[in-house]
Design a protein around this nucleic acid. Structure first.
Lengths: 247, 247
DNA sequence: CGCCATGTTGATTTCTATCAAATTGAGTGG
DNA sequence: CCACTCAATTTGATAGAAATCAACATGGCG
């Protein structure tokens, strides 16, 4: 089955294996989206030797904040959340990682956030030490990592604007348009149907809101006929409304 | 006059030239704090050839959001703000840059924020193209840029937590402790006297608050004898209170 | 000395959080 | 297959923190 097939059942995002055959970069469907896109075909082989496929179950924790960085990951299927937690339990999600996203850009010794599987996840796992060696030998690979890191930084600034200055309605609109754009990149085309594998609490913690406000706002949008809530996410009825709301 | 002298008059931060003599990296007092710390003495000379000193007046705009990146800067004296503005005028500051801070880590083609001088500023200016060439020749310099970028990313995540989950009082406490730590790094020792060259509106736009809330909160802290407002900033009376507030 | 930007204070509103309860729905076992 | 359970979500009522609206104070500077 081709994961990119539009005819797949609703909710297939989480379960479908973008990585068709384990440990073969030549067959990796998310390669063009990933850090590997910086490499030539003959380099996939050398990188492949450093990597192993690994699977995590729903709710499993991949890494904990302040843990030593032992492995780095490229998500090949499923969705994870990046979480910062305060001592009193308040949470802020700093992002979601989707297929193609690389975790461990910083090359630092310890993680600055926890990574938790929202759905079953498959990932391409690299040992930190061996990837560091690889980086030393391939300056253009380091340049690619750096570009990805600074792009992340720009997205982080976008998110600061969202958290600091947008209303609940604007936050939700911006969130839906962000997730839509990211699925579009993975699937190769934009769709008004937006799967939301994360729960309302995760959305709230990403947007700096409460679960009640997220629920109320989405349902207001539905009552205003701007979207329809479907079992696995939402379907946007009026893209213009959302585009107008996100600045 | 030695800028690091504790006896300097209040407010001297902004005006004092950390870069004692123009265009000589050997005499640059902020070098150990800057990107140049990644280089060996014999490399300062080669980097120096790429740089020129430049001065900006208070309120002057160094670069505008979406401008092409022509030059990159290391701030050598003074303070600038990094600003994102929404079409309707809402502002979010994504950071302040102090002496030693490098602007242009991303090596991308366009700026993703405006940079505005809060005080008179001196900076070490690099042409983008020539620094890119330099980066190509010195992988360890690129590694240093990458480390700085990922550290920025970690700080950006801290700021997301602040914007999304902290109360006004906690935001102010975290802000004051952050600025204190950054002055301490520049001056070589921590002080309870915290110069705040940025105005209340800048603090508000950094913390996702209004100017009134910033003013009220600082004055509440003063009434509670946790700090004293002084002409150029504040003096903390009870560090424990602030440490306790910032998670 | 008075002007204008900046900051402070007060009164009121509003948005979102909080508290509380009802509803839905996926998974389980009889 | 259906009742049951428990978590997730929705909805309602109320409270509260910060925004907004509106003066007023301060202070640097010509």
């Amino acid at each position: 089955m081709n994961c990119l097939d539009e005819a797949r059942p609703l909710g297939a995002h989480a379960g479908c294996s973008h990585h068709v055959k384990g440990d073969d970069c030549r067959l990796c469907l998310i390669r063009p989206l990933s850090v590997c896109s910086a490499l030539e075909p003959d380099e996939w082989a050398s990188l492949e030797k450093l990597s192993t496929d690994i699977r995590f179950e729903e709710r499993e924790t991949l890494v904990r904040e302040a843990d030593d960085v032992v492995s780095l990951y490229t998500i090949t299927a499923g969705v994870v959340r990046l979480v910062r937690t305060l001592h009193d339990g308040r949470r802020q999600l700093t992002g979601f990682a989707l297929p193609g996203d690389f975790l461990g850009l910083s090359l630092e010794r310890t993680w600055t956030f926890s990574i938790e599987a929202i759905t079953p996840v498959t990932a391409c796992r690299f040992g930190r030490a061996s990837l560091m060696e690889y980086v030393d030998q391939k300056p253009h690979f380091l340049m690619r990592l750096h570009e990805m890191a600074t792009h992340e930084l720009s997205l982080a600034q976008d998110h600061m604007v969202l958290l600091g200055r947008l209303t609940a309605e604007e936050k939700l609109a911006a969130f839906l348009m962000e997730i839509r754009r990211r699925w579009a990149r993975i699937e190769g085309h934009a769709s008004d149907h937006i799967p939301l594998p994360m729960g309302r609490q995760d959305i709230a913690d990403y947007l700096g809101l409460t679960i009640e406000t997220v629920s109320r706002t989405i349902n207001q949008m539905q009552r205003a006929h701007q979207l329809v809530i479907v079992p696995d996410g939402v379907r946007l009825l009026n893209i213009g409304y959302f585009e107008h709301l996100c600045p």
